[in-house]
Nucleic acid binder design. Structure first.
Length: 544
RNA sequence: GGCGCUAUCGUCUAUCGGCUAGGACGCAGGAUUCUCAUUCCUGUAAGCGGGGUUCGAUUCCCCGUAGCGCUACCA
């Protein structure tokens, strides 16, 4: 991209709500661009809309970004590494600040004055009613409004170009308006779309400094992205129609457009053709976190919405990464780094992408399964706000069984509850499909002795397993014990020429109490002999 | 209304003029299995319509059509 000057990319969120999916993807792609270009990814807070301002949302935003490994290199965050901004309860850091637009008012006013001096902007005194009337006429006559001319006819030249400080005190509440003077066609460039020609005579003047002294996006963009040395403006597609205004504004004021534009296509909601909105209820990124989705899965999924490496690779983290790194934030940073290795602009899609929960679920299942048992258990417990319950080997081993059966962290216990909280099955459930209930129970009675013997035989390995349940490789050691039980039990069945289903079905149902459950061998590796005996005996009572 | 963007399986997408249109999710079937899940295999399903350029168009161009966006003292 730009090779002479240092690559700098920015995101400029507004503290008017929560972090949503579309925005998160923009942050991700910005970070990816900065990594590819070995540049800086910075963040500034666009808090110029005082009516919609929600101060708390700034902290929520930077916290979320940290969770997703997207903390900016410069700008604002929630770490104590810069100067604190009390109002938002966040920190700001970097050499080109302030990064909070409400702290830059004097800068905007200074440039507004230059704009006035050069007659590139003027004060518009039209009240809302008048502007509404003009817009109605515009619709009827299909001609664009010349705001400058209208103001010129009604007000004196000295009013139109009065100094900023005076105008802000003016009871008529004027709005500083950008004066589009060029009437010709302009060719605008976007990294994704390419070149588009716009007719500037169709564009209308637009407000840049509101009567409350705060800039609109247009002025803030004009000033900040020059002063903060942005080299790539990556923003949502909805801005694309403004590219002509902005390009001409930069050319007029600064003599050049000092950066490239890239407009990101929308993310569509699962139903309908609208971009994901707050009405979908599922756009808030915090919802996904709350529902037990891993940041790794969300980021990996989002990366593939509008981008594709052109290879068949989709998972950008491997099982090994989960073993060597137990920290979620560091791991998601690694994920982003891995993505950046394949990331390039010509792999971006120009059309909007539809959000698909099923695919996200798949990513989440993949990554949950890669989690170490320790991390899976602790994160699931944390997720359920269970704090730190007394950890028993039994619980821990039972949860282990859930890991490749769940979609989200919220489902801890979904399958394993039958081990921790036994309920007697219905009588009929004990019947194996090929034989009668009586026969099934007789078989159960018969295998009970084998199970008891086996359970006693393996009590030593099980004791060792349970004692060291917090040590690494638990899953492997557990599976070994389960396998040992399985082999013994199956060889007994084979030696005595017994049909596996006729014995194992009722055994498993007796041990789990459920029609669908982990295998009897896995259950026997967890519960002790007396517990196993008790469960079987209770079922055998159906015999009498 | 004006201006603009976009257009391949249900969804995310590959293809940068040669296609028997590839992959992933989902779905269906099968294998393994005492059940469920996992894993593995197989299948399912697509180039919006019409012109043009070309030996040849999903790919390039034009016109339609559809979807979306913008048309603020919101960003």
């Amino acid at each position: 991209m730009t090779n002479l000057k240092r690559f700098r990319i920015r995101q400029a969120p507004s503290p008017t709500g929560y972090l949503h999916l579309g925005l998160l993807r923009q942050f991700l792609f910005s970070k990816l661009f900065s990594l590819v270009n070995q540049g800086t990814y910075y963040l500034r807070l666009e808090d110029t809309d005082r009516k919609r301002l929600l101060p708390d949302s700034a902290l929520g935003l930077v916290k979320n970004l940290q969770t997703f490994g997207l903390e900016p290199d410069e700008g604002i965050n929630n770490q104590n590494k810069g100067s604190e901004v009390d109002f938002y309860n966040i920190y700001q850091y970097g050499d080109l600040g302030p990064y909070i637009q409400s702290e830059r008012l004097n800068i905007y006013h200074e440039h507004a004055q230059i704009l006035l001096d050069r007659q590139l902007a003027y004060w518009s005194y039209l009240d809302p009613e008048t502007r509404q009337e003009l817009q109605d006429i515009k619709k009827a006559t299909k001609t664009s409004i010349n705001y400058f001319k209208i103001n010129q006819e009604k007000f004196a030249e000295s009013d139109l170009f009065q100094p900023v400080q005076n105008a802000l005190q003016d009871p008529r509440k004027p709005v500083l308006t950008y004066r589009l003077q060029r009437q010709e066609n302009i060719i605008c460039h976007d990294l994704l779309v390419g070149e588009t020609q716009f007719d500037l005579s169709l564009e209308e003047d637009f407000g840049i400094l509101k009567s409350d002294g705060y800039p609109t996006y247009h002025l803030a963009h004009l000033i900040d992205d020059k002063l903060m040395q942005t080299s790539l403006v990556l923003r949502a597609q909805e801005w694309y129609p403004s590219i002509a205004k902005h390009t001409t504004m930069f050319q007029d004021y600064w003599g050049e457009l000092p950066f490239e534009y890239l407009h990101m296509p929308f993310i569509l909601g699962e139903v309908g053709n609208k971009k994901m909105s707050k009405r979908d209820g599922n756009v808030n990124i915090q919802n996904y976190l709350d529902r037990g989705y891993l940041p790794e899965a969300i980021i990996n999924y989002l990366a593939f919405l509008g981008w594709n490496p052109g290879t068949e690779k989709e998972l950008y983290l491997e099982r090994q990464d989960f073993i060597t790194n137990q920290d979620s934030i560091e791991r998601v940073q690694l994920l982003i780094k891995n993505l950046s290795l394949d990331f390039s602009i010509d792999k971006l899609s120009k059309s909007p992408a539809r959000f698909n929960q099923e695919k996200l679920n798949w990513f989440n299942r993949q990554y949950i399964n890669m989690l170490s048992l320790e991390e899976y258990a602790s994160r699931s417990l944390q997720h359920k706000s269970l704090g730190a319950p007394e950890l028993s080997a039994k619980k821990y081993l039972a949860w282990n069984l859930d890991k490749n059966r769940v979609t989200t962290l919220a489902e801890l216990g979904a399958e394993s509850d039958c081990i921790l909280d036994y309920r007697l099955p219905d009588k009929d459930l004990l019947k194996w499909k090929k034989i009668s209930l009586e026969e099934s129970l007789t078989n159960l009675q018969e295998i009970k002795d084998v199970v008891v013997r086996l359970s006693n035989d393996t009590s030593e390995v099980r004791r060792k397993l349970h004692e060291s349940f917090l040590e690494p490789e638990l899953n492997t050691r557990f599976l070994n014990v389960a396998k040992q039980i399985e082999e013994s039990l199956k060889s007994w069945l084979k030696d005595n020429q017994k049909d596996t289903g006729s014995y194992l079905w009722s055994l498993r149902v007796a041990l789990s109490g459920k029609s669908k459950s982990p295998s009897p061998f896995e259950i026997l590796a967890i519960i002790d002999t007396s517990e196993a005996t008790d469960r079987i005996d209770r079922c055998l009572h159906f015999l009498v």
